[in-house]
Amino acid sequence: MSAHGHAAEESTFVRTYTLTRGRTRPRYLLGLETVLDAGQGRPGPAQPEECEEIFALCRERRRSVTELAGRLRRPVTVVKVLVSDLLDVDALVVPLTHPYADTDAECGPSTQLLAALSAGLKRKWPDAIAYPQAG
């Protein structure tokens, strides 16, 4: 990377971490796909404007950490820090998923869940081009 590009990247980095008051790690265990819902609380007046934005987006519908980061145009880690602050004041909650959804992070989704996905995709795209299976 050019010296200029490097400097530009560094200053974006500094600006971004001003948002989180220097914190580079979220307090909660949040995945890229963790979904968030608006809760009973509200973002506090001391919280940055981005917290209001996150709260407003989650009031419209449930949003994943990745989606929030994409819409805010902020890096995922930064959004995780802000989301952690919002979880602390109950402005956000992680919705309970369907009991079937107990995806094991180590082994992947259950076969029931995979079968449901297959059926759901076929219903949505009845004309999907089906391929012969190899192996």
């Binding site: 307090r27 909660y28 265990l29 809760g39 909650v93 992680v94 919705p95 959804a101 449901a116």
Partner: peptide, 15 residues
């Protein structure tokens, strides 16, 4: 790292 608090109202779709 703490596990985030979970809402007990309506279940969300599985992701």
């Amino acid at each position: 790292l703490h596990t985030p608090p979970r809402s007990l109202v309506d279940a969300a779709p599985a992701v």
